[in-house]
Design a protein around this nucleic acid. Sequence first.
DNA 1: TTGTACGCGTTATCAC
DNA 2: GTGATAACGCGTACAA
Lengths: 334, 334
Amino acid sequence: MTITMKDLAQMVGVSESTVSRAINNKPGVGEDTRDKILELVKKYNYKPNQLARNLAKQETKMIGLILPDISSNFYSEVARGVQDIAIQSGYQVIICNSDGKEKEELSYIEWLESNKIAGIIFLGSGLVNDKVIKLGLSDYPIVLANRFVEDLILPSVIIDNAVGASKATDLLLKSGYRRIALINGPKDNLQAQNILTGYKEALRAYNIEFKEELIINGDWDRDTGYEGFLEVLKLTEPPEAIFAANDLIAVGAIEAIKMGGFLIPEDIGVVGFEDTIVTSVIDPPLTTVAQPMYQLGVSSANKLFSLINEDEIKERIEILESRLVVRKSTKKLI
Amino acid sequence: MTITMKDLAQMVGVSESTVSRAINNKPGVGEDTRDKILELVKKYNYKPNQLARNLAKQETKMIGLILPDISSNFYSEVARGVQDIAIQSGYQVIICNSDGKEKEELSYIEWLESNKIAGIIFLGSGLVNDKVIKLGLSDYPIVLANRFVEDLILPSVIIDNAVGASKATDLLLKSGYRRIALINGPKDNLQAQNILTGYKEALRAYNIEFKEELIINGDWDRDTGYEGFLEVLKLTEPPEAIFAANDLIAVGAIEAIKMGGFLIPEDIGVVGFEDTIVTSVIDPPLTTVAQPMYQLGVSSANKLFSLINEDEIKERIEILESRLVVRKSTKKLI
DNA sequence: TTGTACGCGTTATCAC
DNA sequence: GTGATAACGCGTACAA
């Protein structure tokens, strides 16, 4: 038998509104009556029924987080960041796995809306579709995390992969490598394009000519790394270093390099991108560009709560930089 | 401006009760009135307010999942399993990161209770404390996943690590290795004890004497593996194989083995435990015992929904077996 | 400082 | 087949 405000009111001999005020620490309650009420609250272990509160205030203390797959290392790390901030603000998080499917996303949105969830964070790759934009244009609090939309009208937090790629390439150049091959993801992939952009920028800063032959496009997997290296090895002038667009590609490349009898980093330097656990397990430990996943979650959540509380938003678009982690697959700086 | 049942009722010229019946596909509504109502529902894109529903029915379509840390590979995989089943049943999942702290767990429970969350899955290591047991003894639906309680009075789903360890040891024996060292976690750790149990069982089946000197206890990390191997190497009779109690330990051991100039699997065989991504990246690919993480989530969720729906529960305790994944760090079977 | 009265949007139990 | 009416438990404007 759960106890309600009404019960408490009867016991103390006051009205329900007074009980309500006392419980919510609102002014306008006499010292002694408040004490009496709070005493009974403890005694009977009274817990306000959140459902009733939610209905009365037409709001919940929950936010929604829509992402492709919580079991992925990347997304679960971001989710943790979101949750930590949410808890601080007294909110809980509902995580929705969309598997990147638009249909799922829309049905989640419906659910979240009709449950009066306070706001939504959209996390994931891919471009944003019209419906999401429309949703954002209404007054529903919504933040885009690591999702891209051409005009960027919605509040967003993104990771600047171009800068990360530039840093990685720059490190290789600073370490003395000159001919640097880029083994990248699919040509039409946004992430891959950003990485290419950063790579080119770094070359330009060193006045090194960009050579199409040093660019390999493939999938985001190990095979691409392995085959990719064999590919560039065939060039009349083989590369001195490999920039792999993610860690798995790097792993594949390293296998191929070792297989060929080359030494890392002496003969060939390697840089990865992502900083997963494998980078520290592989031999030699991989120099890589670490993505600020947790921070992505934290920033997105902060931005969402700014929206919910209708605070001023400093920057509509927040850009996070990735961080270079130097290990042993690149030569020491001179 | 959101539309409500009241609005619909006025437009059609019927009472709210009729609208409610029509929307919920309940009998007792005329063909034509129902059609008229559903038509307007579409036209105005009416969505029932779940908050009001929840209050009226005193229940929500949500379950809680309390786990140590969603960013961990293990837990996020389980979480995915839980969510997939929940969605099928029309529920959403609230994930709560306790970091293994009892205080956090209790405060989450309070929140979930006062929000009338339909049920809770407790996921995590460690023993269950009294409060959880008390909670379970009330009529609140609650399932323990991968948590251990001595008497196991609460509905639970657990992974039998002893059997897994036994399988791993057995494989080594079948492959011809005889002196097998076990590099394990902390002595007082439940998981470590289970692994030891399985190890012993397998030895017994082969009539091989158990030797204390072949057991190393340490942390669940790489160093333990590295140092552990160096330790057993000092024995007058060094081991022919290493059974590592998790993959990280195995990685450390492999490093030490290679450093010593031994060949894997010819000179020394290695088996890990867990099946993380590193097992396939390392050279040679690691033979290991894979934990059914996703299945753990699925089974736990299924059990919880049985409780919620008050179905008959077949087995109060469900035991999942781990699966042996044979790669290249052990000799081929003869 | 306290109480009254109503609203929040829906479900459920009666009547008719 | 349909319609009042009362819950569900709490917040709040207004009156006292």
